[in-house]
Write a protein that binds this DNA or RNA. Structure first.
Lengths: 354, 354
DNA sequence: CTGTTAGCGCGTTCAA
DNA sequence: TTGAACGCGCTAACAG
């Protein structure tokens, strides 16, 4: 039960000083209030000898803040991603001395309210609201009065708080550029396209990836050789789309809109004895675990979930410390922070003569 | 900032009673101390009208417990699994009114100490220690004095605390039985075997799965047709092992020791134009995400991470409440709780004539 | 330079 | 039946 924690009063008594003196010394403000070196020494020594650690609950009550963050995600399925965001957030928080409460709503609004209540009851200093779906949503009203960061959530209209999102548009550009730089000019799209409005999904990822791809291509005077709109981005759909494509042409370059589609593409290609990357180059998005397991490894642009989580924690703590230091000043306005999607270069792209 | 929380004192003042009265009423002990119905009514009404919620920090300071748990995992890679355990734990905790601090050590012992300190500073009522590796380890000493549950950690020798593990042995039995019940008698093992000591991995999963498989087979008077010891359970290794096997025989039934090996097996089989499940049946373990994506879907025995996490939280809260209610009594002894690994029946097994 | 005092918000005696 | 007073452990005024 660990009831045996020593209190500041015990340390003070043992060191023969008043509690306030001990408090001053241990909070590092000893020198600035010019406490005698002897006292300081004595307090420090007995504190470490007795294994003193301040009771954070008491400090929280006294100071009104707890060095604690709340993390709420609606993660339904794709849990690996949520896990990475959480870990990133925890890591970022820990680097600045914060702990984090984690909660999950499964998309249930009632549950979300309850979680927020439970967190506010425990006086968290701020909240990270994370989603796996990225599309717009309404925000609970209490959050207006609390430091908040949105993680992987695109809101409709302006938000008053920082938002962290993956740089999908830029990743689309990078994906297309990778293929073009390798000499490819006929690029087939699996998942969306070929036109800018050929998208059938609520996720903004599809739109932005497509827009990025098209922007680079048009800069080079290119348009997609073909495109397949797919609603469910899963291996069987990728398989079917590529199998259908193969009845018309033998592609040399594919952009799959995510790794699961790419997995299906691999299957279709392998059945046709088409070699990756010798016969066809493939790039994709997400860096799901299969991307590394496929043969050859899939070159893909990674969703930087961990980095995003970490960034969110950092932004939130900045906010918290801002209005801890200057409670009157308005907090800095909410900006959108785009986290780059780094390429994972594996073996699925080969340079060709143009 | 949310500084606008109403306090018990404010509610009492507004209702025209003393704080202690309000406290009594709101903690549900009004009737038992026979507070006038009028007062009760008034307190309740103003409390809800003002949106009163008790300050959990203050309650924690006063009562010495915080309805808060700590969850520490060493999760290095396989983060999906860790994520599921965490979610299970959070869910189990929430069902009983607890929140949970999550921490991650990356296997770093110093970090583990720091996290435990940070959690104890915040006066968590108990700790779940989770690992992704399942093999034995030393435990930090403080945990002796704190309610603790071990999650997916096998300790050497007896532990004084509850331990939650997947029922690997039983899953091994179930896997073999699945194939045998479908009429198979020649079963090839990919990952370990054929002998009981043919295991080359630190994880106890391999040992127990193998032991389970062998126990069922020997009950039926069978032994494995072959076995391949593999250190790294990844698709390329599975591919190689099955490719090698195919040079010797054409197998009718395979047990892969995890889904990634099975994925490699699929690749090798497909290259040889061997149909699953018509020509060969496959069962596996883990229920990784690829198991559902493979063609045909892979029948596999799922690691019940979410359930395990939930169970751990429940056991921990039992412990916490035990010594909250009877602080003198010794806590119940630590037992090992085996959580069944449920089968996910997909399309990779076909019945054959014996 | 150091000690005394007063709460932070709440639960719990103990009197009235 | 209710209210006043105390203390959980700590920090921040204010004296001394």
């Amino acid at each position: 039960m660990a009831r045996k924690r020593v209190t500041l009063a015990q340390v003070a008594a043992e060191a023969g000083v008043a509690v306030s003196t001990a408090s001053l010394v241990l909070s590092g403000r000893g020198p600035s209030v010019r406490i005698s070196a002897a006292s300081q020494q004595r307090v420090f020594e007995t504190a470490t000898r007795m294994g003193y650690r301040p009771n954070a609950v008491s400090v929280g009550l006294r100071k009104g803040h707890t060095s604690t963050l709340g993390f709420i995600s609606d993660s339904v399925a794709s849990s690996r991603l949520a896990g990475e965001m959480i870990k990133g957030a925890i890591e970022g928080a820990r680097d600045r001395g914060f702990m984090v409460f984690v909660g999950e709503t499964s998309g249930n609004t009632t549950l979300e309210r309850q979680l927020l209540d439970a967190m506010f009851d425990r006086r968290v200093d701020g909240v990270i609201l994370a989603s796996m779906l990225t599309h717009g949503r309404e925000l609970p009203a209490e959050l207006d009065r609390t430091p908040t960061v949105l993680l992987n959530i695109a809101v409709n209209g302006d938000a008053a708080m920082p938002i962290v999102l993956p740089a999908e548009f830029q990743a689309g550009r990078d994906a297309a550029a990778t293929l073009i730089d390798a000499g490819h000019r006929e690029i087939h799209l699996i998942g969306a396209g070929p036109g800018p409005d050929d998208v059938r999904t609520i996720s903004s990822a599809a739109n932005e990836r497509l827009a990025g791809i098209l922007s680079v291509m048009s800069e080079k005077g290119l348009t997609p050789a073909s495109g397949r709109v797919i609603t469910q981005w899963l291996p069987p759909e990728g398989y079917r789309a590529v199998a259908a494509l193969l009845k018309e042409v033998t592609p040399r370059a594919l952009i799959c809109f995510n790794d699961r589609l790419a997995m299906g593409a691999y299957q279709a290609l392998q059945e046709h004895r088409i070699k990756i990357p010798d016969d066809v180059s493939i790039v994709s998005f997400d860096d799901a675990s299969i991307a590394a397991w496929l043969h050859p490894g899939l070159t893909t642009f990674a969703l930087p979930h961990r980095t995003m989580g970490k960034r969110a924690a950092e932004l939130l703590i900045n906010l918290v410390e801002h209005d801890r230091n200057m409670p009157d000043t308005a907090p800095p306005p909410g900006e959108v922070h785009l986290v780059p999607m780094p390429v994972r270069t594996r073996g699925s792209v080969r340079r060709v003569a143009p």
